[in-house]
Amino acid sequence: MVLSRNKLYSILIMACVAGYIWVCFNMVNKQSVLEPVEVCFIKHFTNIPCPSCGSTRAILSLTKGNFNEAFNINPMGFLVAFIMLFTPLWILLDIVAKKNTLLTFYQNLETYLKRPKIAIPLLIIIMINWIWNINKGV
């Protein structure tokens, strides 16, 4: 898919808004007696957690300032929280300044990540995180 500036930005904004709604929903829901809502397909059907299962809980403990706990639940929570914090700001800056620095950054990042030298270590890190996830039973 060739992403134009507006298309990429609207996808990112929608994803961020959905993420914030999801985090707020979980914050409110945690205090009630209801069962936790599971949306992950892999976990639902196979009972094996996927590489990013637990990100929501990690972000929730990040909001309380428990960095160690967040790292122990799922280190990917840091990455997701970082993206959720900074993309809306970057998009806002781009819109105000009428530039497309985020689009250029996104395209450069895509070509950069496709290099085997970068892609294979990242893949290994994700696999290790996944094995850790399965072992600790997130």
């Binding site: 898919m1 992950c40 397909f41 996927c50 997701v80 996104y106 990042l109 895509e110 990540l113």
Partner: peptide, 27 residues
């Protein structure tokens, strides 16, 4: 699809990472 492998195969690395990080966009 929940791991974003389909998007990686197409060459949309950015969207693939998005799918991977969010459990396939919450399904």
């Amino acid at each position: 699809g929940s791991l974003g492998i389909d998007r990686f195969m197409l060459g949309d690395t950015g969207l693939g990472i998005g799918k991977l990080l969010t459990c396939g966009g919450l399904g």
